[in-house]
């Protein structure tokens, strides 16, 4: 029941926050253009050669390789460096943006959206970054260990068993890695939500609370993740189907292709926001009552719709953890 409620809330959040969706898409586009534009400049070599006409009908890997022959190393150096910086930048920007998204979802007020968004983004950035580094490090250590162990088992089994057994084990290893990786992902998501919803300033406390929440609501949290992943998959499938029937030989059709691609990207941004909204609602509906820990003042939850949002930078002035309500009162959030 709570899962369905959370799902509905997530979908409602998409409808209610179209501008946030567009903001996410725009950020995504700008970051991607940072690498795509230099590449477009390089690809412009194709404009002078009639050999490239084949690209209008069908992708030619050979042609792409050939145009890169004479400056491949330079291109590769540039692209790989840009790529690394892009991933770093995207991680930071994404961490920044998630604070804004959670703040907006937690505090639907009349204040200007961008003001709320960026105030929240700035407020939570360092804490979210700490969460990312902490949870990411743990995830890497655990996944590396797991894969080393599984790799050794697969190698050992490969020596004596039939060819199918290592394949199945390899598949199992992949699934297990995805599963474990997803647990860490959920822990990160709910730690962020706990930080915002419960007003936590301690990264460790947020992670512990998130861990407890995820394992207590294992199926529910996964159900939400799977729903939105499946929705993303459907969008992707639709794109492939459209792409399959869309000839891209004229300017108009190429522009149509670009429009479809960006529509898909917008849809992905919407699903990303929907997932956050659903997860936040599930957390609010299912979170346990938290006992106050003596010696450390708990920050005030900031997501109460009924409670006015504090001034940016004045978090934790609105009361204590004890203000958390029952499921019914929590269900009105957002």
């Amino acid at each position: 029941m709570h899962t369905a409620q959370a799902l509905k809330k997530g979908l409602d959040d998409i409808r209610a926050n179209k501008r946030v969706v567009l903001l996410l898409w725009l950020t995504n586009l700008i970051l991607a253009l940072a690498l795509a534009l230099p590449l477009l400049g390089w690809l412009d070599k194709l404009s002078d050669t009639s050999e490239a006409d084949v690209m209008l009908e069908q992708f030619s890997l050979r042609l792409l390789v050939e145009i890169g022959y004479y400056d491949f190393s330079a291109l590769w150096r540039l692209a790989s460096r840009l790529f690394v910086w892009l991933i770093l930048a995207a991680s930071l920007v994404s961490t920044f943006m998630s604070g804004g998204v959670l703040t907006v979802l937690a505090n639907p007020s009349e204040e200007p959206l961008l003001e709320r968004f960026f105030a929240g983004a700035g407020r939570y950035f360092l804490r979210f970054l700490g969460l990312l580094v902490g949870v990411g490090t743990c995830a890497m250590v655990v996944l590396s260990g797991l894969n080393l162990l599984m790799g050794a088992i697969v190698a050992k089994v490969s020596e004596s068993s039939s060819e199918v057994t290592p394949l199945i084990l390899g598949l199992f290893q992949t699934v297990l890695s995805i599963l474990v990786g997803s647990v860490f992902l959920l822990v990160l998501h709910y730690a962020r939500i706990a930080t915002v919803a419960d007003g936590l300033s301690s990264i460790i406390k947020a992670v512990l609370r998130s861990l407890a929440f995820v394992f207590r609501n294992f199926l529910r949290t996964f159900a939400l993740l799977i729903f939105f992943a499946a929705a993303g998959g459907l969008v992707y499938l639709a794109y492939w189907m459209i792409r399959g029937v869309l000839p891209t030989t004229s300017w108009l059709l190429i522009l149509a292709l670009i429009a479809v691609q960006q529509a898909v990207t917008v849809a992905r941004s919407a699903l990303q926001l929907g997932l956050v909204g659903a997860e936040m609602q599930l957390y609010v509906l299912r979170r346990p009552k938290v006992e106050k820990i003596s010696g450390e003042p708990e920050r005030q939850p900031e997501l109460m719709a009924e409670v006015a949002d504090p001034e940016p930078g004045t978090e934790g002035t609105q009361g204590t953890q004890g203000t958390e309500g029952t499921e019914e009162t929590q269900g009105t959030l957002g």
């Binding site: 970051l31 795509a36 690809l43 070599k45 194709l46 006409d53 690209m55 190429i254 292709l257 691609q261």
Partner: peptide, 14 residues
Amino acid sequence: PAVKLASHVLYWLQ
């Protein structure tokens, strides 16, 4: 051809 290919690159990056 260049724009079409670049649009795919952009899409993959996104």
